[in-house]
């Protein structure tokens, strides 16, 4: 058996295989439900109802999708340049820390929100600057450095919440003070939990799409990702492009932390992110790194998580099924993408 490239994949091949991947994911989901002793079809149904069955459910799904859109965009931007930023989780926390520092009384008035967003982006960008400079100057693998920064950042947050940033009125819990009202993102509709962070995330997706398709920088990012050698030969400043890409990616990931703190939680705690930075990788890969696709896949993945929570309460299937489903969806999709480009040949 060997793989042979397909020069020009047909439309049927390009659309049919991803559809097959989703179908395969469903089949696996039903198998998992069966293993847990529940009815397969009912379990799928309950996940769908839990994610989309009511206005509240839909808004909850969109809320959950918001940080995933930001981290998904961060990963999509970086991966497009073949800059493997695995550190969106750390950049998210960098943004969250800044948001709390600026939002708990250091600044007041209407400028708090835009300023904290901007500074948060700078913090996230700064965090990725180190790894990218190590990569361009010394050839250090950014997968390792960005991944390890995640753990350093989590411990740093833990230190902050046990020490300098600990809320004195917090009954000893490791959490920060709450944001002042001006530092909070308002809700889109009064009384419903969905906040403006979601709208900003969609704007960010459109912005990234415009950058990639309409600007010279976007052209450079794609060229460097496709072929650094050809980009360099054509006179592109390859290292500068990588640094700019890193700044954009880190800034986007930091906005996830900013919007979670300012829009939803109102304070910093160690459970702010249940792995949004890592899930962002799945979101971006499922979207084939397309920024508008990221919005769709973020909502899809968020729906699986929110729906699984609800299903778990009703059917008694553990919520871990959500992690397994997103993982299976990713594996099936990666395989489907591979199979659009190559075919398996005997001999």
């Amino acid at each position: 058996m060997r793989l042979e490239p397909v020069a020009n994949p047909s439309t049927a091949r390009r659309l049919g295989l991803p559809a097959l991947a989703i179908a395969a994911t469903m089949v696996v989901a039903m198998g998992l439900a069966l293993l847990a002793g529940a009815s397969p079809l009912a379990t799928l149904g309950q996940i769908a109802v839990g994610a989309l069955g009511s206005k509240l459910a839909i808004l909850e799904t969109l809320n959950r999708a918001t940080p995933l859109i930001f981290t998904g965009l961060a990963v999509a931007v970086a991966f497009r340049a073949k800059l493997w930023n695995i550190g969106a989780e750390a950049q998210l926390y960098a943004g969250a820390i800044v948001t709390v520092l600026l939002g708990t009384g250091a600044l007041g008035g209407p400028l708090v929100l835009p300023v904290s967003a901007l500074v948060a982006m700078l913090a996230g960008a700064a965090l990725l600057l180190g790894p990218v400079l190590l990569k361009t100057r010394l050839g250090v693998d950014e997968v390792v450095t960005t991944l390890l920064l995640n753990f350093i950042m989590l411990l740093f947050v833990s230190y902050l919440l046990e020490g300098p940033m600990k809320d004195p009125m917090g009954m000893g819990w490791p959490k920060s003070q709450a944001l002042i009202p001006e530092a909070r993102l308002p809700r889109i509709v009064d009384g419903l939990r969905l906040h403006w962070g979601f709208a900003l995330a969609i704007l960010a997706a459109i912005g990234v799409w415009v950058i990639q398709t309409r600007t010279a920088l976007g052209f450079e990012i794609r060229a460097v990702g496709q072929s650094p050698e050809a980009a360099r030969f054509a006179g592109m400043p390859v290292n500068a492009v990588l640094v700019k890409t890193a700044l954009l990616s880190g800034g986007l990931a930091a906005l996830a932390g900013w919007s979670e703190v300012a829009g939803l939680k109102g304070l910093l705690s160690q459970d702010l992110s249940p792995g949004f930075g890592y899930t962002g990788i799945i979101v971006a890969m499922l979207a084939l790194l397309h920024p508008l696709g990221v919005v769709v896949t973020a909502v899809f993945v968020a729906g699986i998580f929110v729906g699984s929570d609800a299903m778990s309460r009703a059917a008694g299937v553990p919520t871990y099924i959500a992690d397994m489903l997103t993982a299976v969806a990713l594996l099936c999709m990666v395989l489907a993408i591979l199979l659009t480009k190559v075919r398996v040949v005997r001999g």
């Binding site: 010279a216 794609r222 060229a223 496709q226 006179g235």
Partner: peptide, 25 residues
């Protein structure tokens, strides 16, 4: 660049000097 189209390959060297203004292609 193999996966770029002919237009993109044609401007690979001159996209800044001749085919963009203030960063817009």
């Amino acid at each position: 660049i193999g996966d770029f189209d002919l237009t993109e390959n044609a401007v690979l060297e001159t996209y800044r000097s001749r085919f963009s203004r203030r960063g817009w292609m």
